[in-house]
Design a protein around this nucleic acid. Structure first.
Lengths: 195, 195
DNA sequence: TTTTATTGATTGATCAGTCAATCAAAAATA
DNA sequence: TATTTTTGATTGACTGATCAATCAATAAAA
């Protein structure tokens, strides 16, 4: 069975398994055994490749934020006007796989972890900054810089807030409604400036 | 040393200690020992009064949400007009003790816990509903019901989102700026309807 | 004396992390 | 080509630490 070149395959499998298990469990207090089992390998192998549970979790955050970033980049490239690019950023934030309850649960767990893990925090800060700067950059084409910064803060907060509220699964808001609410925030603010 | 009537004193001390330790630690993976130590009693006593760690944590959520509720009720009573009441709800949400990094960290941990603990989730859902309904009730006096519901969703999301972003402690937003952003959201939306 | 408050000592379970051993593919050598 | 050596992949079994939970014992008040 052992074949050469398994490392990248196993790493990916373990990182994906970690996200799934964490999402299902809704917490980072998952065992290496559970993750390894989900990935179809022994716990020892997970340690072999990642050194520690903490490192595996950090890698999990990193890889998944990288994927999210790739989605945003693609969507931005397809959008032409600044206004379309703003919509693209919003759309990706709420896209199906991101907005699935397990995914939201996992992100929530990572935000909590960021209180203790400097490295986890660093990655989430980068995500937050990127979201903010994507919004600002395109807003600047539509309104003065000062307003752009303010509107971007508000929009970013609204996006994150819709996630949190979604995590409680009471009165769940649809993807479309979340997008509409955020779009509406932008439109109303931009119109208010024009008026 | 043992005096009669200590139960309520100890319960309060333990619940407060739990919130503090969880806030400092940024996670619910705190030991009963740490909490008990912080409260100045033995771990065994914590178990004596609460039965289990889980129950202590649930009580901690309940008590602290109850206090938050009391603050809101008081602030609402002092405000006269619907618009003032909206401002009161916002102000309390961001008031100093709520917006302290340790408090935010603790709430974040509880949100994560809500994924697993039905009872914790229930309390947080009640808080979310209360926030929403306080907003809707007063918005209805200022705009049509449909718009009130929508604006309330947006405002609640923005409040929760500002918390999350604050938890990352990068580019921290001041209490005043957070209040201003949320107030601005309401004002802009209400003006847009009038115009 | 009975009841309430309190703790030290202990237990049992859980887990992260380690390690020595195995297995099979690949590379080197004959 | 056949044989040997090396190396990467993999695991079962084990260890040490941590921690929630229990309990019997003590001390003070009622």
């Amino acid at each position: 069975m052992p074949k050469v070149g398994m490392e990248p395959v196993r790493r990916k499998a373990l990182v994906d398994a970690a996200m799934r298990v964490i999402g299902d469990h809704g917490s980072l207090t998952v065992t290496m055994s559970e993750i390894a089992k989900q990935a179809g390998v022994s716990p020892a192998l997970a340690h072999h490749y990642f050194g520690s549970k903490e490192q595996l979790l950090i890698e999990t955050v990193r890889v998944h934020l990288q994927r999210l970033r790739d989605s945003v980049v693609t969507a931005l490239r397809e959008a032409k006007s600044p206004r379309d690019k703003l919509s693209a950023v919003i759309r990706v934030s709420f896209q199906a796989d991101q907005f699935a309850p397990e995914t939201i649960a996992a992100w929530l767990a990572f935000y909590a972890e960021a209180q203790r893990s400097e490295e986890t925090r660093r990655f989430l800060v980068i995500y937050a900054r990127r979201l903010h700067s994507n919004l600002v950059a395109n807003l600047k084409a539509l309104c003065p810089a000062g307003d752009a910064a303010r509107i971007a803060e508000g929009a970013a907060a609204m996006i994150d807030g819709l996630y949190i509220r979604q995590s409680l699964r009471s009165a769940p808001i649809s993807t479309e409604a979340s997008i509409a609410l955020t779009e509406d925030y932008l439109t109303t603010n931009l119109n208010a400036l024009k008026g």
